[in-house]
Design a protein around this nucleic acid. Structure first.
Lengths: 243, 243
DNA sequence: CCCCTGTTCGTACCTCGTACGCGCTGTTCG
DNA sequence: CGAACAGCGCGTACGAGGTACGAACAGGGG
């Protein structure tokens, strides 16, 4: 994949020009997003997108140099959903970071495939705007640049991790408990007596139901909020932030 | 991939049997690990592993039903590295969780590809033992099962997220700053004036050097420790844990 | 010692990304 | 107003990947 050794991002290359082409990059990206949302990222192939658009496969390569470019476009579209309208973003740093974190989480949960697929995507305009918004809510604090990025990074880490796990959980169709063969295997293991604490955790309860509860509470927002608040407290403490 | 619809984990199937075969699952997994560590996960193909072992490609399918099984084996091998010897694991919950979190981080950083590959891998024996160890350090607390998993999950989320980002950063060969075309694009964007806070963050400093510093501090362990401590404080606070 | 069965693997098919190059067509210039 | 010249669309083909199928092979129990 990606044999073209030109590492410049797609936004450095103008969209095809003068003779109004049949499609636009937005259109192509939107089609890819739709496929990914409905059928998962692995269903997104150049052939598939082209078919969906009623075009020949190779036509796409007039809008995009490689599939990595396509992925960058998808990333950009997703990041755009994370952005706030200027008047929607709280001014206070704590409220601002919390809002951004929540929004990021929501978007990544909505596009479960994105986390995985976009990991190495090239940063586009929306990503830059996202950084801008994160920095802007910290602009009223006394932090220097490095510290700002440290705080943003800490929160980002937590959000990514939370989404990662929530998506893992949701990937098990019908909840992890529904995967009979694996449940059977795990239960058999537990009964071997080599895992006393784990075994104890499930005694006196239907293990299937217990797993569901754990999964639910992990994927739900409450736990997320607890950790987020803890991180912001810790940051405020460590860097001596008021508010 | 994975056409076999049998969803049972590979550990539910005994290794091939009576007439001692040429290889073992461990051997195959180890070979795969080596390839992944040296050349990256995408270099791990069935053909490649077979070649490395001096076997025919299809031979592997006597040890493993699909590539997903192979991935499960790799996962299991990696999880084994996360485990503590029984006497190495601190008894106190805070120290214990910290130790597990650090170890997890170290291992996932060592096997940068694992994060990705691990995501949907079936849980194996080592994964269960890992859960066991996490639960065991919390066994002296007053938390109920759901709460224990909540705390473990919170920490796990943070660790995963941190590793995810650290690996992203390390994936840029020679640091993000080395990617000339992207740097040029981003700088051009910043100069457009649409991103005042981001622009301000880099004024009075060589932007390349600034990025390096940010990357370095994000990938380094210090920031990680700050967030980790914050989370544990928050958890202790929220759940009323002493120690 | 021979046959049965566990093991090995050559061949082939399908999907993917994408290089190459031909043919069509809107645009612009003379 | 017409021709030439891009800009654009896409058919074909190649190599790499996973794995289904079934033939070839060998080692041990009768």
């Amino acid at each position: 994949m990606a044999s073209t050794s030109d590492r410049s991002p797609i936004w450095a290359h103008p969209e095809p020009g003068s003779r109004r082409p049949r499609f636009t990059r937005e259109q192509i990206a939107a089609t890819a997003l739709t496929i990914a949302d409905i059928e998962g990222f692995e269903a997104v192939s150049m052939r598939r997108i082209a078919t969906e658009l009623g075009a020949g496969t190779m036509t796409l390569y007039h809008y995009v140099r490689t599939k990595d470019d396509l992925i960058a476009l998808m990333d950009n579209a997703v990041m755009a959903e994370v952005l706030f309208a200027d008047d929607e973003l709280p001014i206070e740093w704590r409220a601002g970071l919390t809002a951004i974190a929540r929004r990021t989480r929501e978007v990544q949960l909505r596009h479960a495939w994105a986390q995985h697929a976009l990991q190495n995507a090239a940063a586009g305009p929306s990503a830059i705007r996202h950084v801008e918004q994160s920095l802007s809510v910290l602009s009223r604090t006394s932090l220097d640049t490095l510290q700002k990025f440290a705080v943003i990074g800490m929160v980002d880490d937590y959000v990514s991790g939370n989404v990662l796990r929530a998506n893992e959980i949701r990937n098990e169709p019908g909840g992890a408990a529904a995967n009979e063969p694996i449940m059977r295997f795990v239960n058999a293991q537990l009964e071997s007596g080599r895992y006393p604490h784990t075994e104890a955790a499930f005694t006196g309860a239907d293990s299937r139901e217990m797993w569901s509860k754990i999964a639910e509470s992990a994927a739900g927002g409450e736990q997320f909020e607890i950790g987020l608040a803890a991180l912001l407290n810790g940051a405020a403490d460590y860097y001596g932030l008021s508010d």
